[in-house]
Design a protein around this nucleic acid. Structure first.
Lengths: 142, 142
DNA sequence: GTTCCTGCAAAAGCTTTGCAGAAGA
DNA sequence: TCTTCTGCAAAGCTTTTGCAGGAAC
């Protein structure tokens, strides 16, 4: 299936978000660039196409996307928030050398083993964040 | 074993950190208050005892502790960094209701199962952060 | 004596807020 | 038409930086 403006519009409507031009373009950017971008990166990439765009709108949009569970907020360090259009359970790996944030897969059966995490009986878990740091394959081979 | 000023001094020397009065008191605070405090919390708790203390020193000290792997930096959201004197592998749980950050235990054998996290072959892992959010037992029972 | 640390003030950087004009339903 | 959104400017907060005096070794 090809992703068109109409598809992004529909997605926004499905999530009860009014499909303005700015929001459609931001969603399109996130779908096409799964690199966990920051507000600043999104703003600078879209600015050439939307010269009237403001950072406030990017902030507002991502807040509404996150509130609607259309994106995930990543707090990899406390500098800038990053956003992930993939809201399925998965892990993140930050390479301390090149700064890339990689996704990695989590075995759902094994992660739900109730002997893996101890002491959370009677706690309601809303989100699970698995975040590793280290040196990626690419940087190791250089 | 009783923890005295001398013990904290020794710990700092062991970690190659010059044991100044401020650093000793900050370490003492962290050992006695395992609540993942912020810079602001540490500063305000110590200020009555050390009226000349500055926040800059608290920042500097925690940076040097973190660089020496004497404390862990926690990024639970992007508001303020929190610090954990427990550097053993363990998880954190943030209660969305009361704001408490709980520690929880991780089964070391199961977490090291190489089928749990997929796609990290040839990546060097330096730190593993497991961070859950939800509602804690206490808040659920109110 | 030399090196490193402390603490003040100022600056920097990310994010939020207030609000008037514009766009969506 | 009515509600909601955009974008500008200003403010808010946490954190960093520069530097002079002070403490540690």
């Amino acid at each position: 299936m090809e992703l068109t403006i109409e598809n992004f519009k529909e997605t926004l409507v499905d999530y009860n978000i009014r499909p303005t031009y700015q929001r459609i373009k931001i969603l399109e950017y996130l779908e096409g660039n799964k690199t966990h971008p920051t507000v600043d990166e999104i703003y600078h990439h879209l600015y050439p196409q939307i010269p009237t765009l403001s950072k406030t709108t990017v902030y507002n949009t991502l807040r509404s996307f996150a509130d609607a569970d259309l994106v995930l907020e990543l707090h990899v360090d406390n500098s800038e928030v990053r956003f992930d259009i993939n809201t399925e359970l998965h892990g993140h790996f930050l390479c301390k050398d090149c700064g890339t944030v990689y996704d990695f897969e989590i075995n759902t059966e094994k992660i739900n083993d109730d002997q893996l995490f101890i002491g959370l009986d009677d706690f309601s878990i809303m989100s699970k964040n698995i975040f590793f740091t280290g040196i990626c394959k690419k940087c190791k081979n250089q």
